[in-house]
Simulated scan of single mutants.
Amino acid sequence: MSVAIVTGASSGIGQSAAIEIAKRGAGVILTYQGNEAGARDTVTTIEKDGGVAVALPLDIGRSATFPAFRDAVAAALRDTWQRDTFDHLVNNAGFGHMAMFAETTEDDFDRLLRVLLKGPYFLTQALLPLLADGGAIVNIASGSASLSGLTPGYSAYGTMKGGLVTLTRYLAKELSPRGIRVNSISPGSTRTRIADNAFERFPEVIPGLAAKTALGRLGEPEDVGIAVAALVGGDGRWITAQDIEVSGGFNL
């Protein structure tokens, strides 16, 4: 059985990705940071379908905790799957933040940097000794880093996600001798809990976003989760160094 690590899998895209990967027969180590109940829900859903999952706490914004997290991963691999490596890493954990460029503070910028770029960079580095040859990494980027998704107020957020896309290409280059594929996915507007449940608090924005989407609706977490599962699995075996927009044709 292959094993995947999915960060930030207590809700939204991460939760959906963990469930979809498990449906395809992989074990899952999923992480959470404040929403332990959501992580338990993810584990329960996977187990109901006959899968195996373990939830571990992780603060992606505190790189000093990564060695201890790696030890926890090694213990889970040994105790649950009787192996010392895992096969797939999905760097999904993060948060949304909107502020116009002129109002963006250094604290906002630094927090986005720690969580959205520095975190995935050094977490992947920390976990690399446990990642099996022939494995796969998927980084969850954002349409906010592409021309089609440019929206005022996301200069800092989009900058970090753009950096993650560039990191993806470098990792694909450097890890290719080990047969490890690395891709990123850039979701469009997706119904998640991002930015403190913005879509629940401001449902009036949904029709406008749907109207700007070629396929005529807001994205759902499952739309992105299925794409992640395909990329880490055998269906994506000949795809690497790509950023794949999963947006239903936003601004098409």
Rank of each mutant, 00 (worst) to 15 (best):
S2T: 10
A4N: 06
A4K: 06
I5V: 10
I5Q: 07
V6D: 00
V6F: 02
T7W: 01
S11Y: 04
I21Y: 00
I21K: 00
R24D: 01
G27A: 07
E36Q: 12
A37C: 03
A39N: 01
A39H: 00
V43P: 02
E47L: 03
A53L: 08
D59K: 08
D59P: 05
R62D: 05
T65W: 14
F69Q: 09
D71I: 04
V73K: 07
L77M: 14
D79L: 03
R83P: 12
D84Y: 09
D84G: 13
H88W: 05
V90C: 04
A99D: 07
A102V: 14
T104G: 03
T105P: 08
D107L: 09
F109C: 09
R114P: 09
K118N: 14
G119C: 03
F122H: 01
P129F: 02
P129T: 07
L130T: 12
S148I: 14
G149S: 06
S155N: 04
A156W: 01
A156K: 01
G158T: 02
T159L: 08
G162Q: 13
G162N: 12
V165F: 05
L167P: 11
Y170D: 08
L171M: 08
A172G: 08
K173R: 11
P177L: 02
V182N: 01
S184C: 13
S184V: 14
G188Y: 02
A198R: 11
F202Q: 10
F202C: 07
P203A: 07
I206Q: 03
G208T: 12
A211T: 08
K212N: 04
T213P: 10
T213Y: 12
T213W: 13
T213G: 05
T213C: 03
G216K: 13
R217P: 13
G219C: 06
D223T: 11
A227I: 08
A229F: 06
A230E: 10
L231S: 05
I239C: 05
D243I: 15
I244F: 02
V246H: 04
V246E: 06
G248T: 13
N251C: 11
